[in-house]
C-alpha cells in the first residue's frame, strides 16, 4: 500500500538562459512513497497550475531509464543517491518522510541552463557528429556473419554502447568533463572490427570537439562512473587515453 509523504523541495528556478536563477521552496501535498521523482514534479506542477503559478520545467520522456532525457542533481548527486539509476527510476520510498530534497540542473559551461531544470546538451550531439559513427552507406554491408566477433568482445563493446547520453557523468565530475561519454563511444566503436578502420580519426576528432565545447579534463576521480545510470566503467577512459596516444603518434594525418 502506498504511504503518503511530506517533503520539502528546494528547486532551482531560472526563467531563461540569461536570467539569474534562485532556489524556491515548495511543500506539495498528496505525495506518496510509490511516486517517482518525476511523478512528484508532475504532482507539484498540477498544484502550481491550479494556483495560477508557473510550473517547473524539467526534461523527461521514456520514464524507464533508457532515453537519457531526464537528469536532475538531487541533494548534490546526479540522478540522486542510488547507483545505476536514472532520475525517473528513483522513487520517493528511497527517502524518509519529512526529508528535504534539493533539485538542481546539471551544471556545466557546455550544458547551459535553458529554463529551471532543463539544460541544453546539444554539445553531446556535436561530439557524436565529429566522429562517433562508422562510415558505411546503406547497401555496402557484407553478410552479417562474414565477420566473426568473439562473444566476449561483442559483450564488452556492448557495455560501453549502453550509454544513454544523459550527461550525469559531466554533472558529477568535479571538472565537468565529458570523458566517460566520449570514451564509451570511442570504446564501443574501436572494439568492434567494423569500427577499426576509422579508429584514429575518430578519437582525435571527438576529443578535439569535446575540448572545443568547453568540457573539463579527466583527473581520474571516477565520480562519473559512480553517477552513471548505466554504470559504465572508467576503464573506457583509460582505453581512450591509449587510443588517443596511439592515434596522435602514429596517424598519417
Amino acid at each position: 500500500m502506498s504511504k503518503s509523504m511530506k517533503l520539502t523541495l528546494h528547486i532551482w528556478r531560472q526563467a531563461n538562459r540569461h536570467a539569474k536563477g534562485k532556489f524556491e521552496v515548495y511543500t506539495p501535498s498528496d505525495l506518496t512513497d510509490d511516486m517517482s521523482i518525476l511523478e512528484m514534479l508532475d504532482c507539484l506542477n498540477d498544484q502550481l497550475i491550479a494556483d495560477g503559478k508557473d510550473p517547473v520545467t524539467f526534461e523527461h520522456d521514456c520514464r524507464e531509464g533508457i532515453c537519457g532525457t531526464c537528469g536532475i542533481m538531487i541533494n548534490g548527486m546526479a540522478h540522486g543517491p542510488d547507483r545505476g539509476t536514472t532520475t525517473c527510476q528513483l522513487y520517493l520510498r528511497r527517502f524518509k518522510d519529512g526529508d528535504t530534497l534539493v533539485l538542481e540542473p546539471w551544471r556545466a559551461k557546455a550544458f547551459p541552463v535553458i529554463k529551471d531544470l532543463l539544460v541544453d546538451r546539444a554539445a553531446f550531439d556535436r561530439i557524436q557528429m565529429a566522429g562517433g559513427y562508422i562510415s558505411v552507406n546503406v547497401g555496402n554491408a557484407p553478410e552479417a556473419n562474414s565477420i566473426l566477433i568473439p562473444k566476449e568482445v561483442s559483450s564488452e563493446a556492448f557495455e560501453a554502447a549502453v550509454c544513454i547520453g544523459c550527461g550525469a557523468c559531466v554533472a558529477a565530475c568535479k571538472n565537468a568533463s565529458a570523458m566517460l561519454f566520449v570514451s564509451a563511444k570511442v570504446g564501443h566503436m574501436s572494439m568492434m572490427p567494423q569500427g577499426r578502420p576509422e579508429r584514429h580519426d575518430r578519437v582525435l576528432n571527438m576529443v578535439a570537439q569535446m575540448d572545443e565545447e568547453g568540457f573539463g579534463s579527466c583527473t581520474n576521480t571516477l565520480e562519473c562512473s559512480a553517477a552513471c545510470p548505466k554504470e559504465i566503467s572508467p576503464k573506457w577512459i583509460q582505453r581512450l587515453h591509449g587510443e588517443y596516444i596511439q592515434a596522435a603518434t602514429v596517424t598519417r594525418r
Binding site: G76, A78, A108, A176, G216, L222, E223, A226
Partner: peptide, 20 residues
C-alpha cells in the same frame, strides 16, 4: 584553469559523492 571554467559561472549548492 580549464577545469575550473568548465563548471560554468553558477556552481552547485551542494555536492556529494556516490562512490562507495
Amino acid at each position: 584553469i580549464t577545469n575550473r571554467k568548465a563548471r560554468g559561472e553558477q556552481g552547485y549548492s551542494e555536492v556529494r559523492s556516490k562512490q562507495p
